[in-house]
Nucleic acid binder design. Sequence first.
DNA 1: AAAGCGTGGTA
DNA 2: TTACCAAGCTT
Length: 335
Amino acid sequence: MPASAAEQLLDHYDCHARSLPWRSMPGDAPPEPYHVWLSEVMLQQTTVATVKPRFRRFIERWPTVEALAAAPDEEVLHEWAGLGYYARARNLIACARTVAARGDFPRTESELRKLPGLGDYTAAAVAAIAFGERAIVVDTNVARVIARVYGLRKPLAEARKEIRELADRMTPDRRPGDFAQAMMDLGATICRPRNPGCGNCPLASGCMARDSGTPESFPAPKAKPERPKRYGVAWWFERDGAIWLTRRPERGMLGGMAALPGPEWNLDRLPTPSLALVSHGFTHFTLDLGVIHRFGTPDGEGWWQPLERIGEAGLPTLYRRAVEEVIARKDDLAA
DNA sequence: AAAGCGTGGTA
DNA sequence: TTACCAAGCTT
């Protein structure tokens, strides 16, 4: 790769639309560390299109990290509902409180790395983008771009160290944050996993994957683990137009989120009589959840949520869809 | 270190 | 419709 590759990439980047809400033009003051941190955490395993509106709502509701730190856990989890990977929201709360207590964000990658929810990628991204540190930012986009430019066929998991060394070699002293974002934009919009757009790529010259004629075959795809099926039930207690909701345990699936009550999802098969059935794909299994009408009084902790305001309950997608399904059935019956 | 952890878009 | 995949982190 020519020494000017980083410059070519940055030139290309400067000429194209900025995709993130807090993005600044070259020469502008660096973006708020709070904004960079929040968006980078949201962007973990989550698309820009999904994050954009959610990010705006967050900073409108909590304009500073101090405001976020002062918010009750429930409100933050509620605002996160639907975004997935809910451990991120719990770490977000812990991190905001740590930062508020110490007065500001740490300004170096190594100190940022100690905060909850900031791993290698996010610590480097915040250090580079918010503070201008020459941190080595490697996400899956960057790894794919490098694997192609240097013709690495191994699966990314095996090429980690090599890719990191190459990324270090590529990263410029100036504008390391813009460079990181330019690499990620390139991976997201041009050097895509499938159907890469080599014709528009600023790094096409000298790219070994492109020269091979089959750029999409770099790097090798990772083996896919099979996704087993699980079954479970949830209970529908209804009284005066309200249903009984509970909060899930802090740890584990949908940790800390609002939910329909019910036992663990460990059935061999689904019991037949149910108000509704939803099938939901999680990361490592698929769940068929039956909703069963129950009478009497629910036990344990929980609250009556009026169905008219079910949208305000902060339900994760599985339960939101289950409730929608039950309501749709009832409407059918009434019609 | 391998597995657990959501969801929505795209082909 | 299924399969793949996304600005990863934690234990």
